[in-house]
Every structure is written in C-alpha cells, then in structure tokens.
C-alpha cells in the first residue's frame, strides 16, 4: 500500500514536471518565474490538509481516547510542518523577483509564519515532553487551537491590506459562481499538482505511521527478551 502511493507520487511528480516545463505556457507578466506556483500553492494546500487532519484527529483523541487518533495527529503534524516550511520558502523565492522582496510583515505572511511556529512548537512538545497520555492530551489541545489560524490565513487577504494578492482559485463571478482568475492552460496543471501533492502527503503519512508501528513492535520484542 505504501509502495503504491510512493510509486504514484514519484511518477506523478515526474510527469507533472514535464507537463509544467515543456507543455505549459508562461504567465504573461511573470514569465518562467510563475512556474514556482506549481510547488507553492500545492504545498500550502497540503499544509491546510495536514493540519486539518491534526485538528480532526485531536478532537477524536480527546473524545474517544484511542491511540490511533493520537498517532495520526502526531504524524500529520510533522508532515504539515514540512510542507508549511516549503510553502514559506517557495513563497520567498517567488517574492524576490515578483514583489522585489523575500519577506514583508503583511497579514498573509505573518499569519502563515505563525502557523508554522505553532506546529513547530507542537512537534517539539511531542519530541521532548515525557511520552504518555498526558503529552498526548496537551498536544491535542495545541493541535486544535493551532488550527484556528488557518481560517484566519484564508481571510487575511480580504480583512487586511496585504502585499500578497487575494485568492485566485476562490474568486467568484457576478452570479456568485466559482470563477478562478486563471486561464485553463495554467489551471489544469495546478489542479493536477494539488492531486500529486496529496498523493505525496498520503504516502508520507502511511510511511510515518508504519515507522511508528514498527517502533512499538520493536520495543515490545525487546521487553520480552
């Protein structure tokens, strides 16, 4: 199962790369620089997804107190931190040639950095606090509260004046129908990039859970001997 997702991720990434660089036209204003969007946007999408899974599993854990929820929350948080970091870095690399700066303290960037720091704190807690039910409970509370930043990130470009542009994907037309401000030639590879990145996420998550299970099994065997 893990191998299938791994292979699909690899194959998907290679094909997507070929599509984006050989068969997708450049953006009229930004030229080839805009290609970084195909990593930046899916990275942030995975960040949202990963931390939503943390949120969901943490609520599940506090409610049902089953270890499975806790393990999923822990694993998903680690992956979320990875992709959030990737989103911040690719954003900075994109910002330099487009805006003229790697970083500004506008609401979109600041709330995203806040999200990163909250879950870095979460991962640190899981790494350094004594393992057990108490740690899992504490982590679940942080996992739930930290997630509240995500709706804030989403609305940050509407609530406040920012350097970061408003949402392209969630733009609506006159009648309220969804109308992404992007021609289909650029939009399709982006949607596929989101699917490929989701495959990578599932691959990482299953792999991480497997490692966790192996660790537990190993410890049990060592304890028996």
């Amino acid at each position: 199962m893990i191998a299938i997702f791994g292979l699909a991720s690899l194959l998907g990434s290679v094909l997507l790369g070929l599509w984006v660089f050989l068969f997708t036209p450049n953006d009229a204003l930004m030229g080839v620089t805009q290609k970084i969007m195909y990593i930046h946007v899916p990275s942030i999408w995975i960040t949202y997804l990963a931390f939503f899974i943390v949120f969901f599993s943490s609520v599940g854990y506090l409610w049902k107190r089953t270890e499975g929820f806790d393990q999923v929350a822990k694993s998903s948080a680690e992956i979320g931190v990875l992709f959030c970091g990737l989103g911040l870095i690719t954003g900075a690399i994109w910002g330099r040639p487009t805006w003229g700066t790697y970083w500004v303290w506008d609401a979109r960037l600041t709330t995203t950095l806040l999200l990163f720091l909250i879950y870095v704190g979460y991962v640190l807690l899981r790494a350094f606090a004594t393992a057990g039910e108490r740690q899992a409970r504490l982590a679940a509370v942080i996992g739930i509260i930290g997630f509240l930043d995500i709706p804030l990130i989403h609305v940050s470009v509407q609530w406040w004046r920012t350097l970061h542009q408003p949402s392209t994907m969630f733009k609506v037309g006159a009648a309220g129908e969804p109308k992404p401000a992007m021609p289909p030639e650029l939009l399709w590879p982006l949607l596929v990039a989101v699917v490929v990145m989701t495959l990578i996420y599932v691959f990482f998550l299953l792999w991480r859970l497997q490692i966790d299970a192996d660790e537990v099994a190993l410890e049990e065997r060592l304890a028996q001997e």
Partner: peptide, 21 residues
C-alpha cells in the same frame, strides 16, 4: 526607501509562448 510591486490575482498566458514553442 523601498518600492515593492503588487501582483494581481489574475493570471494570463504569454501571447508569444505558444509561437515560441
């Protein structure tokens, strides 16, 4: 002391892109 360029949320395709290709 600093001039930053805002990018619009609208994307469009380079006209010459296809021809070049």
């Amino acid at each position: 002391t600093q001039v930053l360029v805002k990018h619009s949320e609208e994307y469009s395709v380079e006209k010459s892109s296809y021809a070049d290709k």
